[in-house]
Amino acid sequence: MPTLYVIVPILFVMAVAVYTDLRYRLIYDWLTLPGIAYFLIAHAVLRPEDWLAHLLGVVVLGGLSLGMAVISNGQLGGGDIKLLAVVGAALGWQAGLFAMVLAYLLAGVIMLPVWLASRLSRKVTLDREIPLAPFIAGGTGLLLVMVIYY
């Protein structure tokens, strides 16, 4: 179960990432890289028995995201990759993968109808780039709520 040293910082990182991604279409390294370092150090000091799962979270979520970015020809940005690595560092590889799946499900559920409506109306054009940070934050938040309350 996540504790306050995980919940408060991950919510802060997600809130700033959502703001900067929506406003500037960027998720800054000054946010994600210290976030990864913080969670790895915090878990190493406070729960050393689980530290490897969190290091694997960075590698697995960051690696999967990097693979998706390569396959999609850059549709997934570097900030999104590092933000998912932060999620892996905070939650571990298993919970991080679940948060990632929830994020993409949220993105699909919300963006598919928007995309269909824009295609059918032909009046509204949809940007090629869709900010992913709100969906990553939503998936992570949804996972935290599920873990805390169930």
Score class of each variant (00 low, 15 high):
46 L>G: 10
33 L>D: 10
103 A>V: 05
79 G>C: 07
103 A>H: 06
77 G>N: 10
17 A>S: 15
104 Y>N: 13
42 A>D: 09
2 P>C: 04
30 W>M: 09
122 R>T: 12
74 G>F: 08
27 I>G: 10
143 L>Y: 13
103 A>W: 01
138 G>K: 10
51 W>N: 04
127 D>A: 15
9 P>W: 06
10 I>Q: 06
7 I>Y: 00
57 G>S: 00
129 E>A: 14
144 L>F: 04
92 G>K: 04
87 V>C: 08
36 I>L: 01
89 A>S: 13
68 M>E: 06
33 L>I: 13
105 L>I: 14
47 R>W: 04
123 K>A: 14
68 M>L: 15
70 V>Q: 08
95 A>R: 12
4 L>W: 14
108 G>W: 03
121 S>D: 15
103 A>F: 01
14 M>Q: 13
97 L>N: 01
106 L>Y: 06
123 K>I: 11
127 D>N: 14
100 M>E: 05
84 L>F: 11
18 V>Y: 10
11 L>R: 03
3 T>W: 09
76 L>I: 15
106 L>I: 12
80 D>Q: 11
72 S>W: 10
143 L>K: 04
124 V>I: 14
39 F>G: 01
135 F>M: 14
40 L>S: 01
97 L>K: 04
22 L>G: 08
77 G>L: 08
95 A>K: 11
117 A>S: 09
119 R>N: 09
18 V>H: 10
150 Y>D: 05
149 Y>A: 07
141 G>L: 06
33 L>K: 09
119 R>S: 08
89 A>L: 06
69 A>V: 09
4 L>P: 00
57 G>T: 01
26 L>G: 01
110 I>C: 11
3 T>M: 09
100 M>H: 05
78 G>R: 07
81 I>P: 07
119 R>W: 10
106 L>N: 10
14 M>I: 03
84 L>S: 09
41 I>R: 00
50 D>F: 02
142 L>Q: 04
118 S>Y: 02
109 V>K: 00
117 A>P: 01
46 L>F: 08
34 P>C: 05
